[in-house]
Design a protein around this nucleic acid. Structure first.
Lengths: 207, 207
DNA sequence: TCAAGACATGAGCCACTGCTCATGACAGAG
DNA sequence: CTCTGTCATGAGCAGTGGCTCATGTCTTGA
């Protein structure tokens, strides 16, 4: 029988979709154009995905899972709190370089025009990081790496805020130019940024 | 002659627009509905604004100017670095309560689907804060309130990142529920959040 | 070799919405 | 009261893009 879309072809389709959604947003991205650009017909997209929203969701899920995987790997490394933080920061830089569109899509969810289900999906992933970060900080607190009168979840929240905006500042247009506005050429020096943020976080953690 | 739209009416129109754009995004917000909801005709919107994008821009400018005014007022207060920070944090809370949609619009610009000009506008406003924060920190550094081997612009950048995400965490749906996910009921206790963030920033500033 | 099933194709349908413009209401001048 | 210029009105036009389905192609089994 006529060949079904191979899973590589579907991955290519998702990748094209992610780029389109990242560049133009959910509404302005054109399904017909996505189909053309990935060399399949419009119709077949509607065979594999219920509708435009369903396709968007599949793209989002793909992006978030890759992102989450990288973060998890960095976080599960052995070592002190600050060693792990360093791994995280470098993982964030790597993701930004390798999959800039993934972060852009994530930022898009944040802003609103996407479906409630998209938010829930992002929320679930975010929830996992939230618990992981809180646990790591709680643990560091128990080991005396940070001072003991601190509210661990809130510390984790501030910490994640810094990381999240670093992610966006590497990948999303608006945040990128904002980063440049603040820091000039230094913004492009990954190594320097990592060191500066490390000392900032180290101080904030209280030791 | 027939009455022109009063400036109050135009303000009401902008306000309705801001709510619509905040709730549904630039693309999904419906000009006809906005006209209906503010009790004017579609046609008159196109008399006062060039097109949908021009109207969006006017709404955005309105929101950003109010926001910027509040920040400026807080920043120009007398006192030590941390006193000013406290004023800032409280101003952010107040804005979030009084004009939640303003912050949502700002976040929207960040995410992408809006025009290049919208970004530029937001960028200009952001640039002003950037210079102000950097100056305040530079000044505090000169006075010895923070340690002297620090990169002032980058410190200002991290600082603004924390403030920006606090703004969004007060006003934007996704960030609000993320805040709740991290901190539970504590997220709703404004006073507590301000204190926690104050000590976090104080430590990060290195003294 | 051929019938039948499985599948991709893409032209075109139609719902949606930004925007225009013909119309008429109103106010002031004479 | 009438004429004229100003302005809001909203029905409808037109462009866009999501989605469908009639059609054609390929493969398999007998």
């Amino acid at each position: 029988m006529r060949k079904k879309l191979t899973s590589e072809k579907i991955n290519e389709l998702l990748e094209t979709g992610i780029d389109a959604f990242a560049q133009r947003g959910l509404d302005r991205a054109n399904i017909n154009a996505i189909a053309r650009d990935s060399g399949v017909s419009v119709g077949v997209i509607y065979k594999y995905f219920t509708d435009k929203d369903g396709f968007f969701l599949a793209c989002l899920r793909h992006a978030l899972e890759v992102l989450k995987g990288e973060i998890d790997a960095a976080l599960s490394a052995e070592g002190s709190l600050m060693t792990r933080v360093e791994h995280l920061l470098r993982a964030i830089g790597r993701c930004a370089r390798e999959h800039p569109s993934y972060n852009v899509m994530y930022n898009e969810i944040t802003a609103g025009a996407s479906s409630a289900y998209a938010r829930q999906l992002a929320g679930e992933i975010e929830g996992i990081s939230a618990r992981a970060y809180t646990a790591v900080i709680e643990e560091a607190k128990a080991r005396g790496e940070i001072h003991s009168d601190v509210d661990a979840p809130m510390l984790a929240f501030f910490f994640d805020n810094l990381l999240l905006l670093l992610q966006f500042s590497y990948s999303c247009d608006y945040y990128r130019s904002r980063f440049g506005e603040y820091c000039g050429a230094a913004a492009a020096d990954d190594e320097y940024v990592v060191r500066q943020l490390m000392t900032f976080i180290q101080s904030a953690f209280g030791r």
